[in-house]
């Protein structure tokens, strides 16, 4: 008799004293805010380092962390920093609820809890050798920023690099310094558009989907990374396919109610997927059947 089939591999007494420390991912670690920068009226970028100088959080572009504010709660926030600089965590947070409001109100020196990183990554390495088209809308620029860091750090590995970014108004644009920097490069194309603007705005007005038709990419072999409100992503996916891109060349990052971040709480489901662990990044064919079903 090798072992009991009820899963009792150890004697009951040993099980009683078995270490109950949750594996990495279930218990937050303490991080200190080293910088807080106001991006827009309601959006801030925080930089965090481990309080105890503990192990840095290595992450892949597209992954997210769970940020916890003592006494308020925990929320999933995508990682927006440079994957080549994992010593500092960068998170851009928009104040839309109790926890994000508390996060945006943090000051330099304040301490938060961090679990992560979680979830699937943008297949940035797999896009090597081809054109990269990044399409972002609103706060959706935050989860794609690490793609640009990675691709521009290894610029020679890629074909043309294009960022199309849509926001509500010029005042809602995030990372304006980055945008200026990227735009000043001769080897990257940045196009920005807003939904409405006054006379002082000399750029594009219109939805980001309207920029796709003219994006300077070879649609047959490019990889598109798309992040923004779900409606916008649906329209962008249509425009990309009209451009001649196949579904498998298109990647989206989805947002659902991620509470545990490890596939155990059941909240973030979309059809057969747990968005927290099977996503948030999916290729279009995997999620296409569910994106147009209402209230899925």
């Amino acid at each position: 008799m090798a072992e009991a089939p009820t899963g009792v591999q150890t004697p009951a007494s040993a099980a009683r004293h078995a270490a109950q420390r949750p594996p990495a991912g279930l218990l937050p670690a303490s991080f200190r805010v080293t910088s807080r920068r106001r991006e827009t009226r309601d959006t801030f970028t925080l930089e965090l380092v481990p309080v105890d100088g503990g192990p840095e959080i290595r992450f892949e572009p597209g992954q997210f962390n769970m940020l916890y504010v003592l006494g308020v709660g925990e929320v999933p926030i995508s990682i927006s920093g440079d994957p080549g600089r994992p010593s500092t965590l960068v998170h851009t947070v928009r104040s839309v609820g109790a926890v994000t409001r508390a996060l945006c109100a943090l000051r330099k020196g304040d301490v938060v809890g961090v679990r992560g990183p979680f979830g699937s990554a943008w297949p940035v390495d797999a896009a090597a050798g081809h054109d990269v088209l990044v399409v972002a809308g609103g706060i959706g620029i935050a989860p794609v920023r690490p793609i640009l860091h990675r691709v521009l750090a290894q610029r020679a590995r890629y074909g043309r690099v294009v960022l199309l970014y849509g926001a509500r108004t010029p005042a809602d644009l995030l990372y304006t310094r980055d945008l200026e920097h990227w735009r000043s490069r001769l080897d990257a194309e940045v196009q920005v558009t807003v939904d409405s603007a006054d006379r002082t705005w000399r750029g594009n007005v219109g939805t980001v989907a309207t920029l796709i038709g003219r994006a300077p990419i070879d649609a047959e072999q490019a990889t598109a990374f798309v992040c923004g409100p779900e409606v916008m992503m649906r329209f962008v996916a249509i425009a990309l396919q009209q451009r001649g891109m196949a579904g498998r060349q298109i990647f989206l990052s989805l947002e659902r109610n991620m509470t545990c971040a490890v596939g155990l709480c059941g909240h973030c489901q979309l059809g057969p997927y747990f968005v927290c662990k099977d996503g948030p990044v999916f290729d279009l064919p995997r999620v296409r059947p569910f994106l147009t079903v209402r209230e899925m």
């Binding site: 009792v8 009951a12 099980a15 420390r21 279930l26 490890v262 596939g263 155990l264 662990k277």
Partner: peptide, 14 residues
């Protein structure tokens, strides 16, 4: 799965 629920695991083993 990739993450084990430690509480469940401990109770289940006992």
């Amino acid at each position: 799965g990739p993450y084990v629920d430690p509480g469940y695991q401990a109770r289940r083993q006992a």
